[in-house]
């Protein structure tokens, strides 16, 4: 086998790895960016939803051996937590974004310590589903089946979100609210309820991202704050409030992060934040964001 072929295989494998990171980042950042679109706040507890998702799934998976059940439980539980948080704490500060963001900060600290209290501090990984163990081999490229599965699932979720956003009544209401919450509310759209739903869906998506990454990245104390800056870079690069931006941002960050770690591991933090700095210098609202 020639050196050229080896490096091509290597390139393809790393690209697929980058796409896997991008898939997870998209699942997580899409919820963050949607919540921003409707509520005009960044949710600092978003990383905590991701973390809680893995932990809830861990409890379920160790009892049932089913990643599917774990994912469903994680989405439901974390989605309900998100809805309650928005309904009972954030909604009363609808006119004050800073108070809402501080509230999410408080919740992030509570969730972090509560997870440590409930689940302990030992790192773990979720069990692979039986069907998705092993690797796929196409020509000379060998790639783990599970990673491929996650890429496909994220693409399906993305397509589903796009369909809901562009083709349904609730999507139309959502777009109207993102454009102008006051006008939307004047036309009879229940903006507080819609905000609660979007916040809950975002929380569920973050939890789902955590479960999908669970067999590979696992769960450990501190994972919430590890993820948060990554999700922030994705939405800053893509533009806050834009689903398309979350997709493009996730792919960009996933690729750069992956190749950065492989090529210049010492500088991995810088290769990751360089695109954000560049984007801010050129277009502060991101690729698809509006001022």
């Amino acid at each position: 086998m020639s050196i050229d072929l080896l490096s091509v295989i290597y390139l393809i494998t790393q690209t697929l790895n980058g796409l896997f990171s991008a898939a997870l980042l998209f699942l997580i950042a899409s919820g963050l960016t949607l919540a921003f679109g409707v509520m005009r706040i960044v949710n600092i507890a978003h990383g905590s939803f991701y973390m809680l998702g893995v932990y809830v799934a861990w409890t379920v998976v160790t009892r049932t051996q089913s990643l599917l059940l774990g994912a469903i439980a994680a989405i439901l539980v974390v989605g309900a937590i998100g809805f309650a948080m928005q309904r009972f704490f954030l909604r009363r500060f609808a006119a004050d974004p800073l108070a809402q963001m501080m509230m999410t900060m408080g919740f992030a600290l509570v969730f972090r310590d509560a997870a440590l209290m409930v689940w302990g501090g030992d790192p773990f990984t979720l069990a692979y589903p039986r069907l998705l163990r092993g690797s796929v081999e196409v020509a000379e490229v060998v790639f783990p089946r599970y990673r491929l599965f996650v890429i496909v699932v994220a693409a399906l979720v993305g397509a589903g979100l796009w369909m809901v956003n562009e083709r349904t009544l609730i999507g139309a209401r959502l777009r109207a609210t993102v454009d102008d919450p006051e006008m939307a509310s004047a036309t009879g759209i229940n903006v507080p309820l819609l905000s609660g739903l979007v916040f809950a869906v975002g929380a569920g998506l973050a939890a789902f991202g955590g479960v999908m990454g669970g067999p590979i990245l696992g769960g450990y104390p501190g994972m919430d704050f590890d993820l948060l800056p990554l999700a922030f870079v994705v939405v800053i690069v893509g533009g806050m409030g834009s689903l398309k931006g979350a997709l493009v941002g996730a792919i960009a960050v996933g690729m750069i992060d992956n190749f950065g770690k492989v090529l210049v591991p010492e500088l991995s933090y810088f290769t990751l934040f360089a695109p954000m700095v560049l984007m801010l210098a050129i277009k502060p609202t991101g690729l698809y964001g509006r001022a």
Partner: peptide, 21 residues
């Protein structure tokens, strides 16, 4: 130089990210 031309939510996210770096 990086953060001074952004405001509000953006400022918060960028300072958070730079702090993490």
């Amino acid at each position: 130089l990086i953060v001074s031309h952004v405001r509000d939510v953006y400022f918060l996210m960028i300072t958070l990210a730079l702090g993490m770096v």
